[in-house]
């Protein structure tokens, strides 16, 4: 599965972009697609929070959504943390 993650905003306002490809099990791929698809509640009083634009591409299609600090699914959060740590 290919990923393209843009992180914008935050106190530093320095954007970061992570692009790459990971091999995930079928179940895990499904979980990631579902995490991107679920509509989350927003918190419009967030100030200096990051905005996360997450895009996954696999053989079945493209899955894209935008999140902020208050509604980023845990699954995606941990995926991004792993990428930042170089684990993916």
């Amino acid at each position: 599965m290919k990923y393209d993650i843009n992180i914008e905003g935050g106190f530093t306002a320095i954007p970061k972009r992570f692009e790459g490809e990971v091999k995930l099990g079928k179940d895990e791929e499904k979980e990631m697609r579902e995490a991107v698809s679920v509509t989350q509640q927003d918190n419009s009083q967030l100030r200096d929070g990051f905005t996360y634009t997450v895009k996954f591409t696999d053989e079945d299609g493209i899955y894209e959504s935008q999140f902020n600090e208050s509604n980023l699914p845990k699954k995606i959060r941990h995926f991004i943390t792993d990428i930042q740590k170089g684990n993916n």
Binding site: G10, F11, T12, N43, Q45, L46, R47, D48, G49, F50, E69, S70, T81, Q84, K85
Partner: peptide
Amino acid sequence: YGEAYNNAYWDGDEMTYGDGDGKEFTDF
């Protein structure tokens, strides 16, 4: 807050601070 989290934010009720990644940023 979080792991190597390079940020601090206000969420409408409280403040949240990351430790920074230690490479470019440190304790917010």
